[in-house]
Design a protein around this nucleic acid. Sequence first.
DNA 1: TTGTCATGCAAGTCAACGCTTGCCTATGGT
DNA 2: ACCATAGGCAAGCGTTGACTTGCATGACAA
Lengths: 97, 97
Amino acid sequence: MAEDVFKALADPTRRRILDELVERDGRTLFEICARLAAEHGLGLSRQAISQHLAVLESAGLVVSRRQGRYKFHDLNTEPLEHIVTRWLRPGPPEGTP
Amino acid sequence: MAEDVFKALADPTRRRILDELVERDGRTLFEICARLAAEHGLGLSRQAISQHLAVLESAGLVVSRRQGRYKFHDLNTEPLEHIVTRWLRPGPPEGTP
DNA sequence: TTGTCATGCAAGTCAACGCTTGCCTATGGT
DNA sequence: ACCATAGGCAAGCGTTGACTTGCATGACAA
């Protein structure tokens, strides 16, 4: 649903998680925790990130594959592409000179 | 700020307001109230819509021009265009064969 | 098996959000 | 002047959401 996608994007932490995944796929929960703490200075608990990942996953923005005791997360940009076009008018198509 | 844009888009009522404005610009507050009630069956108070419009306006998604005792609202799609591209990978550019 | 590592589940707290209610300002018509 | 219309301000209420804490589960190594 578009509803879930918009709600998922509403939180800054979740958007930073997407930033980490667009840089490289296949990150694990702990890896994301470490990177958010290091790069952005976010001191969030492991469960906080886990809940954020659950929201992103139920919105279809993140897909996960389990492998042993690890769970790798990949970014899925498909729900993002048709969401904004809803309000974009025909307008000037390509070049903006 | 991108923060305000995402938060503005998080609410379904605000997205429907954008739907009304993309159909026709220059709508007044009462006009939007009437249309939301008629088309979508939303029985929201005038102030509720007014507050939603304020959120949309502070996010830059709606611009308003005052004229006498009327206040007309126009849609501004500019903040929408550079927001999703943040996570879109190079990928296959145009056709999807 | 025992211990550790990566993750999941559940309850509880606190702030932000959406909406209402009531009153106020200002413009325009009669 | 009077009154109706279009909109604004502010306090209050109920719900949702983000985060924490504590305990439980499953996989791998010694």
